[in-house]
Every structure is written in structure tokens, then in C-alpha cells.
Design a protein around this nucleic acid. Structure first.
Lengths: 213, 213
DNA sequence: AAATCCTTTCTGAACGCTCGCTCATCAATT
DNA sequence: AATTGATGAGCGAGCGTTCAGAAAGGATTT
């Protein structure tokens, strides 16, 4: 397992890399809460600095702009989703029920990280386009995990064969149905428990592979 | 068919209701383009006024705040989606293929209105909560159209019976898979034509009703 | 026809305020 | 003494919104 804390291309005035890591973690953890509660635009840099326990001056020693923080936040969220997914994939026993297990783990990650995933949907557009691209790449990498799982289950004969394009689209569907639990929570959470939701959606997804005709 | 232009609860200084309708239409049409191109927050009221062919002062005769315009825009988008859907439902011949036809029409509406639907996903959070609620109600009403279609197809025997909660969730799934074409367009449009997409997703959805066991 | 008055609509300079960001200065450590 | 890191008052630009007055249009009087 390689170091999750990638060397971000975000410049800093501070020499000590360890200090940079620690302070940026403070900044991310404090800011993500503010963004969730008030949105990116309504959050001020002064709030962010105060919540992170820094002065406004110090904040700008570790980050060149407010948008830098948003990118750090988005990246950190994706890293955590991916960590959750990798854990799940390692734990998964192969065989018939593997797909259901992976879906369950993914949906539970979406459930736990509901607010965070919603944030990405709402605020990605506020990023400079070069970092928007990076966020979309992250999204695609998570979809890729499902493509891999589906592929290996099909080639091992645990799932019936379907063509590559269909596999790809099913993977996207699974990702989005997980996200749907976050961005339609205002309705779904009042009508289904997360367990209900997982059960029903899993049935639907598995259904793709067990159609008549 | 009743008048689509609802009497919005948005106050105005202007006495002539016809003028209000005309000017607000100018404002909506101009602003929606700006919002799509630059986002709500980066668009200034002066840009909006200029693009609508009004002075900044006049803009504020027809609207009390910048957020009012965003609400008018969101509402107008939903009205158009709903109009598209109603047209489709009227045109639909009943029977076996009805579901596929309705899905096709809905997905085509999502395709045509891609930018607009994306805008709603991104900017709804910027609305005052009282209007956020209205936007979600609109979203729910569109989902309701699918619930109705599915219900009547099931009771006519054109689709096999499934329980109410499943119908509801399938309706949500259809809605969201339509939206998915808009918010994953950055990937999907490079790998699938809208025709491919409709065909594959329709197969997926219909599959829910034709599972073995 | 012209002049006067009144109402409705339009205009844009000006206001007040917020916010992202900087930089001169200070503190701590080596 | 030199380097690294922390501080927060202050800067300047930009923003949403307002309001005193101008224009337009119609009705009424001269």
C-alpha cells in the first residue's frame, strides 16, 4: 500500500513538509464541515482559518487560494471513498454473492459519506477547470473498480457474459445509484432504510444479469 | 390545459401583469444562459440586466433579489421538462412497449435539456430553503409521472406485478438515470450515442420486470 | 391643438459592505 | 544573527441593492 497522501501540486511557503501535512489536514477537516453546512461560496476564508485554529495569514502560508482548499477537500473525500472501497474489495470472498457484497459495501460508504459526496456534486463546478478534471478522474477511477469486479466475476463464470460496453454502463449505474442515496436523501431516507435501499437496488442490479430472453 | 405560467409568489413594483410576464421571460432566458456558462455566483446582476436588455434599476423592479431570478430559472426549467413529459405521455400508445416509449421520450428531454438539468443539480443549494423545497417538489412530481405510468401498466397486465415500494424506487431510478446522462456527460457522451444509451438503459430497466425467480 | 398634470416605468450613479488576499512586523528556534 | 513560521490590520476591488430623478404615455383642461 503506497502513501495515500499524494504530493499535491499545490504550492506552499512553508519548508517543513511534515508541518504542511499536519496543517493542511487541520484546514481540510475544518473547512469540509463549513462547506457542508454553509456551502463553499458562503464560507469565508476567515471562518476557515479560525475553525482550523490558524490565523488568516497562516492559512495563506499553506495554500494559495480559497479554491485550493476546496480542491484539497474534494481530493480528501475521494481518497476516503476509495479507501473504503479497497477495504471492501480485500474483504470480499469471491463467488456467486461477491457482487452483492461489493455493492453493499459501496452503498454503505455512500451512506456514511453522504454529506461529503453531496458536496462534490454541488461544488466541483467552483473549481478551476484543471482541478475539475482531476475530480472527474477520481470519479472515473472508482467506477473502474466496479468494472474490474464485474469483469472478473464474468470471466470466472459467476456472472453470465455481457459485452464490454454493457459492463461499463452497469458500473456507472452502480456508482450513480449509490450517489442517488445521497442526493435524493430528502425523499429516500423518509421512505426506505439504508438496508431496504441496498436490498432493492441490489435485486435490480443483479436482475440485469438474470433476464429472460 | 391550464396556464403554465403560474402566478409566482415573487413580488414586483410593476402594475401591468402582462409586462411583468414579458420582462421576466427576458430575464429568465438571458440569465439561464449566463448561469450555465459561468455559474450563479460568478454571474453579476449587472450582466443579467444587460443580457436581458434592461438597466440594473429595471431588473430590480421585476425582482427583489438575485436569488429570485435563480428561482424563476429553476421553475421555468422544471415547467419545460414537465411539458415535454406530458406531451410524450399523451402521444404514447398503451400496451407492451409503452414503458420503453415513455423512457425514450424522457431521456430525450434530458438530452435536449442537459445543461439546464445540470444547472439545477448544481445551484439548487444556493436558493433560500423555502424555494429549495419547491424545487424538490417539482422533482418529485416528475418522478410521480413515472409512478403513475408504471402503476397503470402493471394493473393493465402489461407489466408483471411488483409491490408499491419497488414501483416507487424504479421510478426514482428512471429519473436519475436520465439525469445521469447530463451529469456524467463528460464521460458518457464520448462512449455512447444517446441512442445507445437509451437502448442499454431501457434494457436494464425493463429487465427489472422480467427477472427469473 | 397645445398645455398641463398624473401615473407608470426606466435609469444609472452612488452607497455600503464584504471578502479574498498581502505584507510589515513579531516570535521562536537554530 | 539568521532562518522559519505566525500574526492580523489593512487594502482595494467587486458586489447586490437603492433611490432621486428622467422619460414615456395617457387623460384632462385650456
Amino acid at each position: 500500500m503506497y502513501n495515500l497522501q499524494k504530493s499535491h501540486d499545490i504550492p506552499t511557503q512553508i519548508k517543513n513538509p511534515d508541518l504542511v501535512r499536519r496543517r493542511r489536514r487541520q484546514i481540510i477537516d475544518a473547512s469540509v464541515q463549513l462547506f457542508i453546512e454553509n456551502g463553499f461560496h458562503k464560507t469565508t476564508t476567515r471562518q476557515m482559518a479560525r475553525a482550523a485554529g490558524l490565523s488568516i495569514g497562516s492559512l495563506y502560508e499553506y495554500v494559495a487560494s480559497k479554491e485550493d482548499v476546496l480542491y484539497l477537500v474534494c481530493d480528501s473525500i475521494h481518497a476516503e471513498v476509495e479507501r473504503g472501497m479497497s477495504d471492501a474489495l480485500d474483504r470480499t470472498t469471491g463467488g456467486k454473492n461477491a457482487l452483492a457484497e461489493v455493492i453493499r459495501e459501496y452503498f454503505m460508504v455512500c451512506h456514511r459519506m453522504s454529506d461529503f459526496i453531496l458536496l462534490i456534486y454541488q461544488e466541483t463546478q467552483s473549481l478551476p477547470s484543471q482541478w475539475q478534471k482531476k475530480v472527474l478522474e477520481n470519479e472515473l477511477r472508482i467506477t473502474g473498480l466496479f468494472i474490474k469486479v464485474l469483469g472478473s466475476l464474468i470471466s470466472s463464470g459467476d456472472l453470465p457474459h455481457i459485452d464490454g460496453r454493457s459492463i461499463e454502463l452497469v458500473a456507472h449505474n452502480i456508482c450513480v445509484l449509490g450517489h442517488m442515496w445521497t442526493f435524493r436523501r430528502w425523499f429516500l431516507a423518509n421512505h426506505y432504510s439504508i438496508e431496504d435501499y441496498i436490498e432493492l437496488q441490489t435485486k435490480f442490479i443483479i436482475g440485469i444479469f438474470t433476464q429472460k430472453t
